[in-house]
Amino acid sequence: MKQIRLSLLGFGVVGQGFVELLRSKRELLQQKYDLDVLLVSVANGRHGFIYREEGLDPELLLRLAAQRKALTEYPDIRHWARPLDGLEATGGDVLAEATGTNLQDAEPGMSHIRAALSLGMHVISANKGPAALAGLELLELAREQGVQLRLESTVMAGTPVVSTVLEGLAGAQVQALRGILNGTTNYILSAMAAGREYREVLAEAQSQGYAEADPTADVEGYDAVAKTLILAALVFGETLKPSDVARQGITGVTQAQIAQAAAEGKRIKLVASLQRENEQGPLRASVGPMALPASDALAGVDGAMNAITFQTDTLPAVTVIGPGAGRLETGQGLLADLIAIARSQRVES
């Protein structure tokens, strides 16, 4: 049985969801994938980095989190106050990076990923910051070190978007893509299409956990821009800056515009798009409200759901629809990436 020694940096909502899956899927991983995952280290910003050579018990970790106790209360562990120091001292086979997204300089996730790759560790990440700001650089570093950097959870959580385009559409040339990549804005626009007012729906989204107390990243389109940058790197092999993406949020969308679109048989959605006019032409990127005809696959995607349509030279339109957020949903993306790494290692050996 293949054993993977796993380090997890980031033990918030996403990290805890991933550990919950490691616990509940343990038998499946062993029986179906011949894989034993040994979680040897976990870190968060408040309590630092804990390590146990024999492995950490997911159930005990989750209990500590549920009781709001410090990771350092786990018995018989080694501890580093700074997660990066702990990672560099202990290493492992795979790093799961699940710290919070920072679109200014992508820290601390950027340093975590660079350190792990330099140590010869594979990396799976749910952190959008490093992938958006330095995706191609990090992928090149992974190639130089002979390891993998997998980013399924950075776009549409665990819905298989990245693996679909890179593996399922292997051999096809993607010419354009359009997507609903932010669940908060889609939830708001769907409710507004039913006649409700923006402020009312935003407050509801915040109360239900779809939107943050400060919803700027979502409603002004910055979150969708980050995912657009990731897709530009992964799908088109280009590094774009946030300023390269024409951005408009949904705060200016009015009920009159919603009603006018409905009268024309259309629905307004916040759409992220990437398109190249020809092989030598520039890659054009945008995020903004669009009135889509009912025949468009994205028009019927409601609530907090996400969707993306790829246009290729061999398949005119491939649309993937699924949840784009959530603790278990995002954890699923990390789990799928972990299994993919284990499978590839078995083939190589």
Rank of each mutant, 00 (worst) to 15 (best):
Y187M: 07
L87G: 01
A98R: 06
V271W: 09
S207H: 14
L9P: 00
Q311V: 09
V94D: 03
L240H: 04
Q248T: 13
A297H: 10
W80C: 05
L139G: 06
E264Q: 15
W80A: 01
P130G: 04
L202F: 15
V347N: 02
L119A: 02
N278C: 14
G129W: 06
R199Y: 12
R52H: 00
L84G: 03
G10V: 11
P242V: 09
D76P: 03
R150F: 01
G288N: 05
L35C: 05
G333D: 10
A98N: 11
A211C: 15
P242N: 08
R63W: 03
N102G: 05
G100Y: 12
Q248G: 00
M192E: 08
A261G: 07
D244A: 14
D57F: 02
E97V: 03
G120F: 09
N44V: 07
E204H: 14
V14M: 13
G333Y: 10
L169A: 05
S344R: 07
R276W: 11
M1W: 04
L28Q: 01
E53I: 01
L117N: 09
R346W: 05
Q104A: 15
V155H: 03
M121K: 05
R247D: 04
L39T: 00
G91K: 09
Q104C: 06
L234H: 07
E279V: 14
M121T: 07
S243W: 06
A263N: 11
G10Y: 08
L283Y: 07
L35A: 04
V320D: 06
D76S: 08
A176Y: 02
G92F: 03
R276L: 12
D93I: 02
L103R: 13
L334Y: 06
E348M: 01
L315E: 11
G331A: 13
G158E: 11
G252L: 04
F236M: 05
T159C: 10
T309L: 02
L22P: 05
L56E: 00
I113Q: 15
S118E: 15
R26P: 03
V94H: 01
K25N: 06
D296E: 10
Q31H: 04
L56T: 01
G209N: 14
G303N: 09
D223F: 09
D223A: 15
A217W: 10
Y210A: 13
L151N: 01
V40P: 00
L229D: 01
Q3I: 03
I4Q: 02
G300T: 10
L274P: 09
H112C: 13
V42G: 02
R267E: 12
L229Q: 03
A89N: 05
I230W: 02
Q173W: 10
A285G: 06
V165M: 08
T101N: 12
V235I: 15
M305K: 06
K25P: 02
L21R: 06
R52Y: 01
G92A: 01
